[in-house]
Amino acid sequence: MVSEERRSEILKNLSEGVVEYEEDRVKEYSNMALDEGVDAYDAIMNGLAAGMEIVGDLYDRQEYFVPEILMCADALYAGLDILKPHMKIDVSSGVKGQVVIGTVQGDVHDIGKNLIKMMFDVAGFTVHDLGRDVPLEKFAEEQLRTDSEIVALSAMMTTTMMGMKKVIAMIKEKNPDVAIMLGGAPVTKDVANLFGADGYAESAGNAVQEAIKMIGQLRKLKEKGVSA
């Protein structure tokens, strides 16, 4: 059993490695965590995700911008790839949901989508990533095939945003209980409401902020011993 002091040191290095976008350091300490008996979920949530929360603060203070966030995300994934296969499958280890995610037809930009995907990955969701420039009917088909609880749609341009409305109608018609999240620069609260969506984030930066807030909430619930 790893000592509390050593556990803290490993988590601190994972967190700092994400913040300083040091992929090698994150890989090194992820392997150490496993070798020395730190729980993989603990390392993900209180090391990697905790680091990403700091990244969110730095973005808020306009010290970090999207290039830095992307590099931090790379560092986070470097650790997640090592730690995730070792997560214990039990009810207390994170969310067990499924999400279909993609960028709508006509839009080939996917930075925001990939940042939101990261949030779902970290939180333990099974992510069905359809990629970008996805034909509208594919979202509804994939939701039905996988019985996912959430469908997350991204559009970076006004000129592609209208496709979202059709997707939402298609999905809600077949399964009104599915939660729909919209993201992208042109998406506003009004647009989300008008299209019948359940949530939205307006930019890659906001997406990561929203993602980080959700992870933060999850971490707090875990600290209180509540299963997500």
Partner: peptide, 16 residues
């Protein structure tokens, strides 16, 4: 260039 010739409504071309 993807022109979405068969798509319904308005879609601008994109770079595939």
């Amino acid at each position: 260039c993807s022109t979405y010739a068969d798509a319904e409504g308005i879609l601008y071309p994109t770079v595939p």
